[in-house]
Computed example of a mutant assay.
Amino acid sequence: MELVRMIRIVLWSFFGVRKRASHDADFANVNFSVLPFVAVGLALLIGACILGVVMLVAHNTGTVQGF
């Protein structure tokens, strides 16, 4: 359950809009030694998803044009 809480904290920080009271409540009891690893992992996952979509679109575009 703590991992889900940390993922939620990181995703809210990526989005950037959060009430101060909710932010303070989330950080009241979180393991700060694991949080950077969760953040880097989620950033890599989001980046890989974006890259996958771009590669999918670029690959389909390339075959339609006949190159």
Rank of each mutant, 00 (worst) to 15 (best):
E2L: 08
E2N: 03
V4N: 13
V4Y: 13
R5N: 09
R5F: 02
R5L: 14
M6P: 02
M6N: 05
I7P: 05
I7S: 13
R8P: 02
R8T: 04
V10Y: 01
V10D: 00
L11R: 13
L11S: 05
L11G: 02
W12H: 12
F14K: 02
F15L: 05
F15G: 00
F15I: 04
G16N: 05
V17T: 02
V17Y: 01
R18S: 01
K19G: 06
R20Q: 09
R20C: 06
A21S: 08
A21G: 01
S22F: 06
S22I: 03
H23L: 04
H23V: 00
D24K: 09
D24F: 02
D24N: 07
A25I: 09
A25E: 14
D26S: 13
F27L: 14
F27H: 04
A28D: 12
A28R: 13
N29K: 14
N29E: 15
N29Q: 13
N29T: 10
V30S: 10
V30R: 03
V30N: 07
N31F: 06
N31L: 08
F32G: 07
S33T: 12
V34G: 04
V34Q: 15
L35F: 03
L35N: 02
P36C: 06
P36S: 05
V38T: 11
V38E: 07
V38L: 10
A39F: 00
A39H: 00
V40G: 00
V40K: 06
G41D: 11
G41A: 15
G41T: 14
G41P: 11
G41W: 11
L42C: 06
L42F: 04
A43Y: 08
A43G: 07
L44D: 03
L45I: 06
L45F: 13
I46L: 15
I46G: 04
G47W: 03
A48W: 05
C49I: 09
C49A: 07
C49Y: 05
I50A: 03
I50M: 01
L51E: 04
L51I: 12
L51R: 09
G52A: 10
M55N: 12
M55R: 11
M55V: 10
M55F: 12
L56R: 08
L56Q: 10
L56A: 15
V57L: 14
V57I: 15
A58K: 10
A58T: 12
A58C: 08
A58H: 07
H59G: 07
N60S: 08
N60F: 10
N60Y: 14
N60L: 13
N60G: 14
T61H: 09
G62H: 09
G62I: 04
G62L: 10
G62T: 12
T63I: 15
T63P: 02
V64G: 05
V64P: 02
Q65N: 06
G66F: 07
